[in-house]
């Protein structure tokens, strides 16, 4: 009486989306990455594995940001230069993608123009040949302008614009962003705060102007100790609902697991008993990432090299 693993069968699957475009596809990347495509629960069965390994994108900021020491150590030489920062991320730390955070466009920081931002993106496009994610500043009006400018400048590159939100819908800037992203052949990330109804509602609004098969979701990643369990359960629920047939949730998911560093326990000196911050911090990022990997997340925004290599290594062993 031997034990047989039951194979799960689901009526639906997650959309498969390719990011970046090579020359023959209308872009300038050396390679593309593909996310999504899962047709079963993540790592429930060795016979039905995710079709693609998780993709890891490393951060680059266009302006000085305050960061814990454990993160800054690796960045002293490149901090003020997004292009060389991106290069280091790819060459030394094996980034599959680069996220360019255009924080300088924030009206409350430097209020740099969309043109300046586009120039930064252009430099990074030239410095590295992996696909890019473009991060805005969070202001729904400004981001719309910045994204529109960049969409046109980088026509055909299949960038992932991070992100479009309910705030944009409220500020009436959702339509122009979606239209521009569609016209110039990019992908979008819909961001909502741990609420599946909001996620579905935002997606429905986006579908009016943008093809569903180029849309990814960020359901919010909370740091370990600050509510990681909310993120974990939301992702498990979303994936289950999607596989059971909810088309509005059948999008690949992204986790900003760099949020780990917002937890005081990740960077604060807690005394000798709790050991070195230089391992505690990266471990905080690693555990956040691995937890959400087990919940089915497809694409990770990360920072610490040790967290990156561990997530890659473990995912590789899980998927082999």
């Amino acid at each position: 009486d031997s034990f047989q693993l039951q194979d799960d069968c689901f009526p639906a699957k997650i959309r498969e989306i390719t990011l970046g475009a090579t020359r023959s596809e209308g872009g300038t990347r050396d390679n593309t990455v593909t996310v999504g495509g899962s047709s079963s629960l993540p790592f429930h069965n060795p016979h039905s594995l995710p079709p693609h390994p998780p993709v890891i994108s490393l951060d680059v900021f266009d302006t000085a940001v305050s960061m814990p020491k454990a993160l800054k150590n690796h960045l002293t030489d490149v901090m003020y230069d997004p292009a060389s920062w991106a290069k280091q991320n790819v060459e030394q730390y094996g980034a599959d993608m680069i996220t360019v955070h255009l924080l300088s466009t924030d009206p409350l920081i430097q209020d740099k123009s969309p043109k300046d931002a586009a120039k930064t993106v252009e430099e990074v496009l030239q410095a590295v040949k992996v696909p890019l994610i473009i991060g805005g500043c969070g202001d729904p009006k400004k981001d719309a302008k910045t994204f529109t400018e960049i969409a046109e400048m980088a026509e055909g590159e299949r960038l992932l614009l991070n992100s479009v939100t309910t705030d944009m819908a409220d500020a009436k800037t959702l339509e122009p962003v979606c239209t521009a992203a569609d016209k110039y052949g990019h992908c979008l990330l819909g961001f909502t705060g741990l609420d599946l109804n909001s996620a579905k509602e935002l997606n429905r609004r986006i579908y009016q102007y943008f093809p569903a098969d180029r849309l990814l979701m960020d359901l919010t990643t909370v740091a370990l100790g600050y509510g990681l369990e909310y993120s974990f359960s939301i992702h498990e629920r979303a994936r289950m609902a999607a596989l059971m047939g909810d088309a509005e949730l059948q999008h690949p998911t992204l986790s900003a697991c760099t949020n780990a560093w917002s937890a005081r326990e990740a960077w604060m000196d807690l005394g000798p008993l709790f050991g070195k911050n230089d391992l505690r911090g990266p471990l905080w990022e690693t555990i956040g990432g691995l937890t959400l990997l087990l919940a089915g997340v497809d694409l990770f925004l990360m920072m610490h090299p040790l967290a990156v290599s561990t997530l890659k290594d473990v995912a590789g062993k899980l998927i082999k």
Binding site: L224, G225, G227, L228, E229, F232, S233, E265, L270, L273, F274, G275, K276, L279, R280, L283, W284, I287, T291
Partner: peptide
């Protein structure tokens, strides 16, 4: 027995066992 190894385990178990 290192604090940096154990602390995230204790916090994660606290979180995942809370009432969702």
């Amino acid at each position: 027995l290192e604090g940096w190894v154990l602390l995230p385990q204790l916090i994660w178990r606290f979180g995942i066992y809370t009432d969702p």
